[in-house]
Amino acid sequence: MSHLKNKSDQVAGKTKEGLGKASGDDKLELKGKLQNASGKAKEKLEKAKDKVAEKANDLLDKKDKKKDDSQKKD
């Protein structure tokens, strides 16, 4: 769900930026740029969080496998 929200922020930001440029409204253009940048930053953070969770799960799986293998030997 947050992926869609991040993309939505990017699209809304680009729209505001374009409207601001077209109308000469510098504040609206800046708000659009900030909203777009915020959406991109959140998206990158979400991807990084997913990668960390994946690596943590891989390490836990390896630990569990070693534990299972050592119990089988006993």
Rank of each mutant, 00 (worst) to 15 (best):
Asp50Met: 11
Lys62Gly: 03
Leu34Asp: 08
Gln71Glu: 14
Gly24Phe: 07
Gly18Phe: 03
Lys72Tyr: 05
His3Gly: 01
Lys51Asp: 15
Gly18Arg: 12
Asp9Glu: 11
Ala37His: 08
Lys21Leu: 12
Lys65His: 06
Lys51His: 13
Lys63Asp: 06
Lys51Glu: 15
Ala56Arg: 14
Lys72Cys: 00
Asp61Tyr: 03
Lys73Met: 01
Ala12Lys: 09
Ala48Gly: 07
Lys66Val: 13
Lys65Met: 04
Glu43Tyr: 07
Asp74Tyr: 02
Ser8Leu: 13
Asp50Trp: 06
Glu46Ala: 09
Ala48Val: 01
Lys44Ser: 12
Gln71Arg: 06
Lys65Val: 03
Ser2Leu: 09
Lys40Val: 02
Leu59Lys: 15
Gly24Glu: 14
Lys55Leu: 15
Lys49Trp: 09
Val52Gly: 03
Gly20Ile: 00
Leu45Arg: 11
Lys65Leu: 10
Gly20Phe: 07
Gly13Cys: 08
Ala56Ser: 12
Lys44Tyr: 05
Asp74Val: 01
Lys67Val: 06
Asn57Phe: 11
Ala37Phe: 05
Asn36Asp: 10
Ser2Trp: 00
Gln71Ile: 10
Leu30Tyr: 10
Lys33Gly: 09
Val11Trp: 02
Gly18Ala: 15
Glu17Tyr: 02
Glu54Gln: 15
Lys63Gln: 12
Ser38Ala: 10
Ser2Ala: 08
Gly20Ala: 05
Asn6Ser: 06
Thr15Cys: 04
Lys16Gly: 03
Asn36Gln: 14
Asp9Tyr: 06
Asp26Val: 10
Gln35Cys: 05
Asp68Gln: 10
Lys47Trp: 11
Ser23Gly: 00
Leu60Asp: 08
Lys33Ala: 10
Glu43Leu: 01
Lys7Cys: 01
Lys49Val: 09
Leu30Gln: 14
Lys7Asn: 09
Leu45Asp: 13
Lys27Thr: 01
Ser23Phe: 08
Asn57Thr: 01
Met1Lys: 08
Lys73Gln: 02
Lys49Phe: 10
Ala37Thr: 05
Ala22Ile: 03
Lys63Pro: 05
Lys14Trp: 00
Ser70Asn: 09
Lys33Ser: 04
Lys67Glu: 13
Gln71Ser: 08
Asn36Met: 02
Asn57Glu: 12
Asp68His: 04
